[in-house]
Every structure is written in structure tokens, then in C-alpha cells.
């Protein structure tokens, strides 16, 4: 079964990455990032069971904590940008260039 879980994890990760690349709405992009993190967590949990070691789960737990903090700050940034630019599109924030 390990293989199945890992393949699922990889699929979810790839889908999340594609979403990051395709979507323009910053919030949706952010959701896709969360999906990628979740895919990783699944892999951690799977490996934890595979090798019989609880530390994989501990790491997954820490990933969740960090993801929570990241979401809080990230969304605050999105709100701030939206307030000043009236837009949540990641393509509109493109002043830092050549």
C-alpha cells in the first residue's frame, strides 16, 4: 500500500504545483501551496508507517504548525496588497523587473 499512498501524494503535489503556475488569483495560488504541503504530509505519514517510526508524524505535525503561521502572514500580505492595488492578481504585482 505504501506505493499507492506515495503515488497519490505525488499526484496531489503535481496538481498543486500546476495550480500555482496556472492560477492568477493570489488566494487560489495560496490554496495550491497548501495542497502541496498536504501532499508532503501524506508522504511523511506514509513513510512513518512504512519504517515504523513516529518521527515522520512529528514532522508532519510541525509542517502543519508552520503552514498555519505561513497562511496567517501570507493572507495578511494579500489583504494589504489588495488594499493598495485593488487587485489580488499575482500578475499585477510585477513592478520588480528589468
Amino acid at each position: 500500500m505504501t506505493t499507492h499512498y506515495l503515488v497519490l501524494s505525488g499526484l496531489l503535489f503535481a496538481i498543486g504545483a500546476m495550480g500555482v503556475l496556472i492560477r492568477r488569483n493570489a488566494i487560489v495560488v495560496f490554496m495550491c501551496v497548501e495542497l502541496m504541503l498536504n501532499a508532503c504530509n501524506l508522504a511523511f505519514v506514509t513513510f512513518s508507517r512504512q519504517v515504523g517510526n513516529l518521527e515522520g508524524q512529528i514532522i508532519a505535525f510541525f509542517v502543519m504548525v508552520v503552514a498555519a503561521a505561513e497562511v496567517v502572514v501570507g493572507l495578511a500580505i494579500i489583504v494589504t496588497i489588495f488594499r493598495t492595488r485593488r487587485s489580488a492578481s499575482v500578475d499585477d504585482a510585477n513592478l520588480l523587473k528589468y
Binding site: L6, L11, A14, L21, G52
Partner: peptide
């Protein structure tokens, strides 16, 4: 995305896992 998924699937599929230990 497809390439990455394929690679992961290939990698995982080629890997030989020991029997599950369980917790």
C-alpha cells in the same frame, strides 16, 4: 506538472520497499 508526476510515479514504482513495519 505531468512530467514531475510521472517522475515521482516512476521513482516510487521502481523503488523496492521492505515489508511494512507498522507502528
Amino acid at each position: 506538472g505531468i512530467g514531475f508526476a510521472t517522475l515521482i510515479i516512476l521513482a516510487v514504482g521502481n523503488a523496492i520497499f521492505a515489508p511494512e513495519v507498522g507502528l
